[in-house]
Design a protein around this nucleic acid. Structure first.
Length: 576
DNA sequence: CGGACAAGCTGA
DNA sequence: CAGCTTGTCCGG
């Protein structure tokens, strides 16, 4: 008899089944974690074995398992899924799915050896990196131009390591380098079976749930990257998952980032490089104080930036324009979309709503003249920026946005785009933030941290100080700590200022928060009540904000609340 | 989630 | 009251 968790998120219960002899693999047995198919209430669903040799409760008719499909997550990972369901107020199934192979894995291969191509390069481990792994936990501040590979090698030198990168491309590149260094590597999600057989694992967010045989060390690169957080509920964070995994396994865990989050710094000791080493790993910064320019004539491009544009090498301009569009017109009659109250042009910040930038009056997105609901974009921020830049540069300028990801960018010397441009252009001689204030003043509690992360990303395209690249920051807030941090290659300035600000405002990591939204939110909040240590704020726009002293208090309160029927979204640690 | 079954609604 | 929709329950 086995206990089975069906692969149906809404059920979130286990059921007992018998295993017919003919389904027991020859010479083996059905194990915890195995993927099965079972009949449940008139339909056949997938599921996972969560316990074997169980005694079903009296009075239930036990049905046989329909099929034993293959191997699945270990008992440790099933347990971790239970913890994650608590931590992010979700169900176990989404986590167990993430921990499972994409396709059926009938049996595991033997432990992965080195690639065998040529003689393995002896693993020379950097002293600083080895010291980081000699501690149970460490946060390493590594400047953007520095190669993190010594930390990767130091992790792999301890045995089968779990190494996370924010995106799969970086994981693939690390895998190649590790194989060349003679390390047996599994790239998740592709090599699930290899990982389960025993290997050092590299991968992105989902690899936090990789099967590991004899986990020896955990390493998270670019720990600050928001790609580590799942956007859909449960809004789990890969860094938190692997930190917990390392803790449970009693193995060292190292988080690396050019600009470590306050969450990371609250978790473990910060190892910062020498001032000299850190300066070498950040580019030279030009701060352009836009307050000094003639307000009537100041466009998007300062005289200094125009001068940099004339130099040699690739130029990348970043313009994260808040709002979907700046100027709209009716697609049917051509009437400009203007404010009813003051006549100024209105923009569309959220689909379906027009907002006046001058008096903040809002109205539904329809034409005042003919009531058509389709409006077209006359001045998307980036498109206009591109035209102006092309005129200034006197050469073709390529526009880059999230929508051009994965396509071949036209060859050009000058690029302009949203922050997506920093992910799509490999390197540059100049990176300019046309309107850094947009980032600095964003109405999010993480704005400073995120702005610095963006600058660190730009710094990667430029290389270190010796490379001669220039980072141009156009701002009206030249004293802002983010600008100062970039200028002095000292991310600690942002951390220090942000820490005090967040402490004063009770923002994470000095609290644990969750948002509750959806049709059933009101009933859920009512059922939650007012547990000690948890503040219930709102509703605002139909959503409630829960703030607790810590995650234990918050998550215990959420776990004690039964979900009412209806649509409900509970997001623990929302980035907002 | 989605099948089973009950209760409710409609039209002849 | 058949035939259909809608709602609630519950799964081994």
């Amino acid at each position: 008899m086995v206990r089975v968790l069906p692969d149906v998120p809404a059920i979130d219960r286990e059921f007992d089944y018998a295993v017919p002899d003919r389904l027991v693999p020859p010479g083996g047995s059905v194990l915890v974690g195995d993927v099965v198919r079972v009949d449940l209430h008139g339909r056949r669903v997938g599921g996972w074995v969560t316990a074997v040799g169980v005694e079903p409760p009296a009075g239930v008719t036990v049905r046989p398992v329909a099929k034993v499909s293959g191997r699945g997550p270990s008992a440790e990972l099933l347990d971790l899924a239970g913890w994650a369901a608590w931590r992010w107020a979700g169900r176990r199934v989404p986590f167990v799915r993430t921990a499972s192979p994409e396709r059926v894995v009938a049996r595991l291969p033997r432990a992965a050896a080195g690639s065998g191509q040529g003689a393995p390069v002896p693993v020379v481990v950097d002293d600083v990196a080895r010291d980081a792994f000699a501690r149970p936990r460490a946060v390493v501040r590594l400047p953007p131009a520095a190669d993190p590979f010594p930390y990767v090698l130091a992790a792999a030198a301890l045995g089968n390591a779990l190494i996370l990168t924010p995106a799969l491309g970086a994981a693939r590149a690390l895998g190649v380098r590790l194989r060349r260094a003679g390390v047996g590597v599994a790239l998740l999600p592709r090599d699930w079976a290899v990982a389960a057989g025993g290997a050092t694992v590299v991968g992105a967010r989902a690899a936090a749930w990789a099967p590991m045989e004899g986990l020896a060390a955990v390493l998270v690169l670019d720990e600050h990257d928001e790609g580590y957080q799942e956007e859909r509920t449960p809004t789990w964070h890969a860094r938190e998952v692997v930190v917990e995994r390392a803790r449970r396994a009693g193995v060292p865990c190292v988080l690396v980032s050019p600009c470590p989050t306050l969450e990371a710094q609250a978790w473990g000791p910060l190892l910062a490089p020498s001032r000299q080493a850190e300066r070498a790993g950040w580019p030279v910064v030009d701060v352009v104080d836009r307050r000094q320019e003639d307000p009537g004539r100041a466009g998007l491009y300062s005289p200094l930036l125009v001068e940099r544009l004339r130099g040699a090498g690739r130029v990348v301009c970043v313009l994260n324009r808040a709002g979907r569009s700046r100027l709209l017109a009716c697609a049917r009659c051509g009437e400009l979309a203007r404010c009813e109250a003051c006549g100024a042009s209105v923009g569309q910040e959220e689909p379906g709503t027009l907002r006046c930038r001058s008096c903040a009056t809002e109205r539904p997105a329809l034409c005042l003249a003919c009531h058509a609901t389709v409006l077209k974009n006359l001045r998307a921020g980036i498109s206009r920026a591109r035209e102006e830049l092309e005129a200034l540069a006197g050469e073709p300028v390529v526009e880059v946005s999230a929508s051009t990801a994965g396509t071949d960018l036209p060859a050009a010397r000058v690029y302009v785009g949203t922050e997506a441009v920093l992910h799509q252009v490999p390197d540059a001689a100049v990176v300019a933030f046309l309107d850094l204030d947009q980032e600095l003043l964003a109405p999010r509690y993480r704005a400073a941290e995120q702005a610095l992360a963006l600058i660190a990303r730009a710094a990667r395209l430029l290389g270190g100080r010796a490379g001669g690249g220039r980072l141009v920051l156009q701002t009206r807030l030249p004293q802002h700590e983010v600008v100062a941090a970039a200028l002095h290659a000292d991310p600690g300035r942002v951390a220090a200022a942000d820490r005090e600000r967040r402490r004063a405002l009770g923002n994470p990591p000095f609290s644990a928060t969750a948002t509750v939204s959806g049709a059933a939110a009101e009933a859920y909040v009512a059922a939650l009540g007012t547990p000690p240590g948890v503040d219930v704020l709102g509703p605002r726009d139909g959503a409630w904000l829960l703030r607790a002293t810590d995650h234990r208090t918050l998550c215990d309160a959420l776990a004690a609340t039964t979900r009412p029927p209806g649509r409900l979204r509970v997001a623990v640690d929302p980035l907002r």
